[in-house]
Design a binder for these strands. Sequence first.
DNA 1: TCAAAAGTGTTTGGTCTACACCCATGG
DNA 2: CCATGGGTGTAGACCAAACACTTTTGA
Lengths: 225, 225
Amino acid sequence: MAESINLAVSTVIFALRPHPDTQHPVLWLPLVRRVRSPHKGLWALPGGPLGSTEDLAASARRNLHETTQLTPRYLEQLYAFGRPDRSDDRTVSIVYWALVHADVASAGVESDNVRWFLADELPKLAFDHSQIVEYALWRLRNKMEYSRIAAALLGETFTLSELREVHEVVLERTLDPANFRRQIESTGQVVATEQFRTGGRHRPARLYRHDHSIELADNGPLTGR
Amino acid sequence: MAESINLAVSTVIFALRPHPDTQHPVLWLPLVRRVRSPHKGLWALPGGPLGSTEDLAASARRNLHETTQLTPRYLEQLYAFGRPDRSDDRTVSIVYWALVHADVASAGVESDNVRWFLADELPKLAFDHSQIVEYALWRLRNKMEYSRIAAALLGETFTLSELREVHEVVLERTLDPANFRRQIESTGQVVATEQFRTGGRHRPARLYRHDHSIELADNGPLTGR
DNA sequence: TCAAAAGTGTTTGGTCTACACCCATGG
DNA sequence: CCATGGGTGTAGACCAAACACTTTTGA
């Protein structure tokens, strides 16, 4: 009986890029257009069947790279979706969520069947993928509060204002700059450099980088906790 | 390629029962003895292949009932384990964890191939099941702090001391009775009854019950959040 | 009347928040 | 020299731990 069940791995990929109108950074995610039934023509999460000798996370990483040419800065298992009615062909999907650093260049890999969308302006998605994205957004917002995954959305160095802006976009609320600074500094997740960002009509901001001595991603229960 | 991958659902089941020596309540969990290769004779988590029209949680619930004759008071997806080397036959296991209320009577369903073990005195387990149990314990302890799953380990009514004892056993540390009382009362997850537990050489303790108007288990992302 | 646990009150130390304020720069 | 954001200081609100204390029972 089990031989009729398909197993797939899909990934919700988030990146921070400017809003086309406001130029303010907002969350984007890439989708692929289905070229086969069912749900042919609808947009869906990137993913596919698990390779017979492939690890789950490796499958997610591979799909992510094939879709976006990118390597995730953060990758974590989200949930296994298995309701019998979620697809016609009885597929259980193990879903990961990822953060990538998508600059303008990497946006060039878009094609007719791969496109980046604003996270809050998604089209109708295939299967239960809309619910999956909702859940991934919920997890992202929750994790943001006690983790430093915002790091994965920025470059190697950044000002505290830039880091705060990431938090504000993800959490959808403004944060007090003074308190945010203290909060970040107290965790020690970030280290000051001797460089400064100049150019604004104001005092230059010190650049920081992440403390790479601490692991970033939660790679699941098997990698020491 | 995907057709060679097996999909199984397993469950880590926790219950609170007295320690055989001290009579103090401690965590127990039931295991089943493998009757087939590989790992024949070793103890393993209850589980089995997913039914072709069965929901993941339903499969966990079914296995749990077949093993212990019990119905879970709490059931939540834990993680999907899929390392290629975790079994010889390339099985991906979607693991749930559950809390049950196991009284002495239900312990009677033990047999040669089903036995309850102290959670901190487990034998060598088949496959990667030892790591899975470790992870489930970690999740239990984490969730305890901000949830009321302790409820699922107790009967319909209980004193605050009993509830505190559950927390203390799971978290492996003592808690201040006064602060614990305030903390629990402030959440409103528990409501006072007009009954009291008498019999000790001390002032009778008021019995409480859980507020059933609030959902208990986290049934995943698809059931409203 | 005493031991033991139930239950209450109070102090205290830390953390979070709001906001006033100074600093350094580009224009 | 002034507008702008970088960065610091600080008072009040809030919260949780510690612990002294009172209450009520069974023996």
